[in-house]
């Protein structure tokens, strides 16, 4: 659905996006993670034909950026970082304007459909300027979907929203995912990316890594099991190091953290050995690294 090859954007002497090469499949929810100024919005703008790349190529739904810009604009939906609604106009008017510009056939029908779907139907005659932040964001999402795009770009969809509004937006994105649309999300919210995305890319001017959140965890940390002991774990570290299937041992206070490939197979053996050595095991659990840990490690690298 989206394919880029060495996509590059330079603003005068500043390199914003450096040789980005990636491929996103149909129906995939793709998270684009990176710090402020990493070039995420610039990438989205290039992929939505708003700005031209300085070098490299990209196709969106088979349309070539630079050559088929109008086709691309017709077929993608974009939720910009700020909703950018016409505050003096009603929700209905805002959407009918965009439906016309997107050449939607049944303008009123589509506007009604999305206003109802996003729970804004009762407020359709109210000026957008009177809406709360969450409602404005929902109205902007409705605007993004009016022309039923197959690819949706969401630039920080939950930024600045309260937890309730953010959850509503996230739930709606999950619903869109269920409809088989391809979704490209730029976000700082790593928990959101972890929950919604099939794959994530960590990006800071250039692509650092791209994979599923699970695969990234495995790739960076392997699988880790933590044994909570009743006593200091230090005394059992050397014993654990001698086990052939253990890759790495960390003893922190009364916690013994072991890195290994297949905990399901080896945990019973480890427990037996620890008990035999006199350890009093209180709990055993798998250590799950958040996407934030992965992100911070990759960005700082």
């Amino acid at each position: 659905m989206i394919k880029t090859e060495n996509l590059t954007k330079k603003f005068d002497e500043t390199l914003a996006v450096d040789r980005l090469t990636l491929e996103i499949d149909e129906g995939e929810v793709f998270g684009f993670l990176g710090p402020n100024g990493a070039g995420k919005t610039t990438t989205v703008r290039m992929l939505t034909s708003l700005i031209a790349p300085s070098a490299g190529t990209a196709t969106v739904m088979g349309y070539q950026i630079g050559a088929d810009d109008q086709q691309i604009r017709r077929n993608v939906g974009i939720l910009t970082e700020t909703p950018g609604m016409y505050d003096r106009l009603s929700a209905w008017r805002n959407l009918t304007i965009y439906a016309t510009l997107y050449e939607v056939e049944n303008v009123e029908q589509q506007v009604e459909k999305y206003l109802k779907m996003l729970g804004l139907w009762e407020r359709r005659h109210d000026a957008a300027g009177t809406f709360s932040k969450g409602m404005r964001q929902k109205l902007a999402i409705a605007r993004t979907l009016l022309h039923e795009p197959k690819i949706i770009f969401l630039d920080e969809p939950t930024a600045g929203l309260d937890p309730e509004a953010a959850k509503l937006v996230r739930d709606f994105i999950a619903e869109l995912k269920g409809e088989g649309r391809t979704i490209f999300i730029c976000t700082h919210n790593l928990d959101e990316a972890d929950r919604l995305c099939d794959r994530v890319a960590v990006f800071k001017t250039r692509l650092r890594v791209v994979d599923s959140p699970q695969a990234l965890r495995k790739q960076l940390y392997g699988r880790q099991v933590v044994f909570h002991l009743a006593e200091a774990a230090e005394g059992y570290a050397s014993m654990a190091e001698n086990l052939p299937f253990i890759k790495r041992v960390q003893a922190v206070g009364n916690k013994l953290v072991l890195s290994l490939e297949e905990p399901e197979q080896h945990n019973p053996d480890i427990i037996r050995q620890l008990v035999r050595a006199g350890a009093n095991i209180q709990f055993v659990g798998e250590l799950r690294h958040s996407l934030e840990d992965i992100y911070l490690q990759l960005v700082n690298d």
Binding site: L50, Q70, G84, L101, E103
Partner: peptide
């Protein structure tokens, strides 16, 4: 100032 130009420019208007 309302930042409404970007969504407008994203439409297939010339």
């Amino acid at each position: 100032t309302a930042r409404s130009l970007e969504p407008l420019l994203a439409t297939p208007i010339t």
